[in-house]
Simulated assay, not measured.
Amino acid sequence: MKLATLVVAALAATAGHAAAQEFQPKAAGTFVVTARATGVLTDASDPITTAAGAASGLNAEVGDDVMPTLGFTYFFTDKIAVEAILGTTQHEVRARGGATDVAVHKTWVLPPVVTVQYHPLPAAKVSPYVGAGVNAMIFYGGDDKNGFSVDLDNGIGWALQAGADVALQGPWALNLDVKKVFFKTDASINGGALKSEVNLDPWVVSAGVSRRF
């Protein structure tokens, strides 16, 4: 009888531990790595002018791209965390207006974003968060098109963020994340004969899987 009682007690303790470990909640000291598929959606369309500022009748438009990215998050408290994302995307710049629609440049951009996040429900299975921070835009590997020469200025912007983690088994979770990045760059075309102040201001939309450590 005592043996049966001990067995029942052991099973109950094991079941309680398993239930407690169904998913690992967020907490101070937690480090999270997130692999995402990320779309950088710019929707930029800004006037191209001459060096003197006269209208050319053309707009500079920047295309979208989807690439894998990595996010690294550290929780300083149960509710306050800092995230850095790393990835790179490629975008085509076109000149459009009237009957003109021509590719003028294709460039890679490294857009690291660092945000401070607030997680109001860190122990919940569905745990939303909001954040704000800064971003850099670093253009590299530019490829001029159709006889045009384009230079884009690097710079710093800022970002707003909202997202949610949906806990799975143990340390694993699904992640949905949306950032609005505010950034503009000066484009110099054909040695400055033409120019444009391009408001990229992309939406950065991501979905992926994370692991908590």
Rank of each mutant, 00 (worst) to 15 (best):
T89C: 02
Q90M: 07
H91R: 09
V93S: 01
V93T: 11
V93A: 09
R94Y: 06
A95Q: 02
A95T: 02
R96M: 10
R96A: 13
G97S: 10
G97H: 05
G97T: 06
G98D: 02
G98N: 02
T100I: 14
T100W: 00
T100C: 02
T100S: 09
T100L: 14
D101Q: 05
D101P: 03
V102M: 08
A103K: 05
H105E: 01
H105T: 03
H105R: 04
H105G: 06
H105Y: 12
K106R: 10
V109G: 00
V109Y: 02
L110S: 09
P111D: 07
P112M: 11
V113H: 08
V113Y: 09
V113D: 12
T115V: 15
V116L: 14
V116K: 07
V116Y: 05
Q117D: 15
Q117N: 14
Y118S: 06
H119N: 14
P120N: 11
P120A: 10
P120R: 12
L121A: 13
K125T: 11
V130Y: 14
G131R: 07
A132T: 07
V134T: 12
N135R: 04
A136V: 06
M137T: 08
M137W: 10
M137P: 00
M137I: 03
I138R: 00
F139M: 05
G141P: 00
D143S: 13
D144W: 06
D144E: 01
K145W: 06
N146T: 03
G147I: 08
S149Q: 13
V150F: 00
V150R: 01
V150S: 00
V150M: 01
V150K: 01
D151V: 05
D151L: 04
L152C: 08
D153N: 13
D153E: 14
N154E: 04
N154W: 02
I156S: 08
G157K: 03
G157M: 02
W158E: 03
A159M: 12
A162I: 14
G163P: 05
G163T: 11
A164N: 09
D165N: 15
V166C: 09
V166R: 07
V166K: 05
A167N: 12
A167E: 13
Q169N: 12
Q169K: 11
P171I: 12
P171T: 08
W172D: 09
W172F: 14
W172K: 12
L174C: 07
N175L: 06
L176R: 06
D177V: 03
D177M: 12
V178K: 09
K180Q: 15
V181H: 07
V181T: 10
V181C: 04
V181G: 02
V181Y: 04
F183V: 07
T185P: 06
A187Y: 05
S188P: 00
S188G: 01
I189K: 11
I189N: 12
I189F: 07
I189D: 07
N190L: 05
G192E: 02
K195W: 03
E197A: 06
N199K: 15
N199M: 04
L200A: 11
D201H: 08
P202K: 06
W203R: 06
W203A: 07
V204G: 05
S206P: 13
S206F: 14
